[in-house]
Simulated assay, not measured.
Amino acid sequence: MARRIGILGGTFNPVHIAHLRGALEVAEQLALDELRLIPSARPPHRTAPQATAEQRLAMVQLAVEREPRLAVDDRELRRDKPSFTIDTLESLRGELAADDQLFLLLGWDAFCGLPTWQRWAELLQHCHILVLQRPDADSEAPEALRDLLAARSVNDPQGLVGPSGQIAFVWQTPLAVSATQIRHLLAEGRSVRFLVPDAVLAYIQTHGLYRGQTDS
């Protein structure tokens, strides 16, 4: 039988409950065999994270260690160049069977920014795209994506067929949590308990991460 693999990339600086809850909801809703969180090493669209790649990887591993539906993939940290999603998809496809389904999870903002991504028009050759949207989202896709949505989107994510090539929207539980917010709280010496898993919080405290550090 064809396997169903989801991937969620990000800096995870640090990983938090919105990342994890969103991933778990998709894994359950689409009955995925596995959903992999993929920490990025050198994100091309962002400044370098304060925590090292090894620290961010360790936090993600701690966050998912007791959830069998979620896994961690460190391939981008082992790559000696910026983390382009198209490279990751090509690498994954080389390891999967031809009929395995691959699902790329993207938040709405990331999806709207696709036209700025490296070789973005080739992404759907390798995967389906699942756009994660909160029920209160009311923005529209940029003009550069409207033709793509008209041609490739399906109404029901359960209706995605074949190994790749389609787009579907998945409604998510609203969780107004961000890594930026968490870093600001930590920099101010405030608690982030219940915003990150307890094991991640313990790691942050043990290693003194984000203390006195502020960013935008």
Rank of each mutant, 00 (worst) to 15 (best):
A98V: 12
V192H: 01
H16V: 06
D80G: 12
D87M: 10
W171G: 06
I86R: 01
D147I: 07
I7K: 05
L124E: 06
R93Y: 08
P68G: 09
A150F: 06
P49E: 04
D100Y: 06
A27T: 05
H184Q: 15
S153C: 09
H126L: 15
E76R: 04
E54C: 07
S139C: 12
P157I: 08
L114I: 12
A48C: 06
Q125T: 08
L57V: 01
E143G: 10
T11L: 06
A2G: 07
A63Q: 02
P49N: 07
G94V: 07
H128T: 02
Q50W: 06
P157Q: 15
R42V: 14
S216Y: 10
A150H: 12
R79F: 08
A97S: 13
G9D: 04
G6A: 13
G113I: 04
L195N: 01
R3E: 10
V60I: 10
P82R: 07
L201T: 01
P174T: 14
L148V: 14
C112S: 08
R42N: 12
L209H: 02
Q213E: 13
G162E: 11
G94Q: 13
L195S: 00
R79Q: 12
R4W: 06
P142W: 08
V192S: 00
L104R: 03
L175A: 11
L209Y: 03
Q166G: 07
M1H: 13
L20P: 03
L32W: 04
D198W: 08
P135L: 11
S164I: 03
A176M: 12
K81M: 13
W171V: 08
T88S: 14
I17R: 07
Q158T: 09
I182F: 01
A63S: 09
T214E: 10
G94M: 09
L32S: 00
L149C: 12
R46G: 10
R3Y: 06
W108Y: 04
L70R: 03
T11P: 03
G9S: 10
L70D: 03
R42S: 13
A137Q: 11
A27H: 01
Q50A: 14
I182M: 05
V196N: 04
L186W: 02
P142N: 11
G22A: 15
H45P: 02
L114D: 06
L186A: 01
A199H: 01
T85N: 09
I17D: 03
Q172S: 02
L32D: 02
L130R: 00
A151E: 15
A53F: 02
S40C: 14
G113A: 14
C112Y: 03
L124Y: 01
G159S: 15
A141D: 05
G165E: 03
I129Q: 04
L37W: 01
